[in-house]
């Protein structure tokens, strides 16, 4: 038994060494850009950039717009996700396809189409104009663009999370006297929580980093992605790096918190 075992060990060890190497290479490729960023940026440049008050504004704009768009996405998207996961039929499939189309559409195209949909010369634009809102080149426009870029990630992710909840558990909760809302709070949310947290984190990262649609409908005010673009064009690579670091730092906390939450929920 042991003789046989020790004879088999070396190839197994070689295989595990090989797979370890494979993992290391893949990981290095994956985190390469992040390492480069940290290596290339000088602390002095970072301090110089963010000691100017004008440099802090894009950070605040990004945080505020992403937070608002995420709120809109959760409020509107949760019901859509629930509908997709819980009711069959044509309506649900059409909703799902439409959301999928939004996900697949290049952000730049979304931006173009938004101009035709809510620009100042359109009926919707006219209605918005009456209440002194404009969906182009305003903070509101930025939020709208981010909703379009981030929304589908949340809706499809949340729908998958809802679908993963065993229907027998919901049935049992109903038979135990639960109303639809108590059942949702006490059974569905805790069990779908992990998936919802993940999709929320993805949506946040998408919203903070939204660029394609934003550059077309909301060139002003600058959020971080646009600030990177502008700095790059006006004063070169080096001046864009501090904003790039800021963007990553802003995009990370929510996903990290959600990751922690989901780990606890899963464990």
């Amino acid at each position: 038994m042991t003789a046989l075992g020790s004879r088999r060990l070396p190839p197994a060890r070689a295989a595990s060494a090989l797979s370890l190497l494979w993992l290391a290479v893949t990981f290095a490729i994956a985190v390469g850009p992040l390492v480069t960023l940290v290596a290339k940026i000088s602390p002095a440049a970072l301090v110089a950039t963010f000691s100017q008050p004008s440099a802090v504004t894009p950070l605040l704009v990004s945080l505020a717009s992403a937070a608002l768009s995420l709120l809109a996405v959760v409020v509107g998207g949760t019901a859509l996700a629930w509908r997709i996961s819980r009711r069959g039929g044509t309506v649900s499939r059409v909703i799902e396809l439409a959301v999928m189309a939004m996900l697949l559409m290049p952000p730049l195209v979304i931006g173009l189409l938004l101009i035709f949909m809510v620009g100042p010369l359109t009926p919707i634009g006219a209605v918005l104009g009456r209440v002194h809102l404009s969906a182009t080149n305003t903070f509101f426009a930025l939020v709208v663009a981010e909703v379009y870029e981030a929304g589908p990630y949340y809706v499809l992710g949340a729908a998958a999370a809802f679908s993963s909840v065993d229907r027998a558990l919901e049935e049992q909760a109903t038979m135990l006297g639960d109303s639809a809302s108590r059942r949702f709070r006490r059974v569905v949310l805790p069990l779908a929580g992990k998936g919802i947290a993940t999709s929320l984190a993805m949506a946040w990262a998408r919203a903070v980093g939204a660029f394609g649609a934003v550059i077309i409908v909301a060139y002003h005010p600058y959020g971080l992605p646009l600030q990177i673009w502008v700095s790059l064009n006006e004063s070169g690579l080096q001046s864009a790096l501090p904003f790039a670091l800021a963007l990553i730092l802003v995009a990370l906390p929510v996903p990290l918190i959600m990751f922690g939450v989901s780990r606890r929920a899963g464990g």
Partner: peptide, 28 residues
């Protein structure tokens, strides 16, 4: 949910995120 009827099926359908005690006292 207003019928006051208990249902047990072949699969126990216990709530996996709750302990046995919490399952037993789940209903309002």
């Amino acid at each position: 949910n207003h019928r006051r009827i208990g249902l047990v099926r072949q699969r126990a359908a216990l709530f996996p995120h709750l302990t046995v005690d919490e399952n037993i006292h789940y209903a309002a």
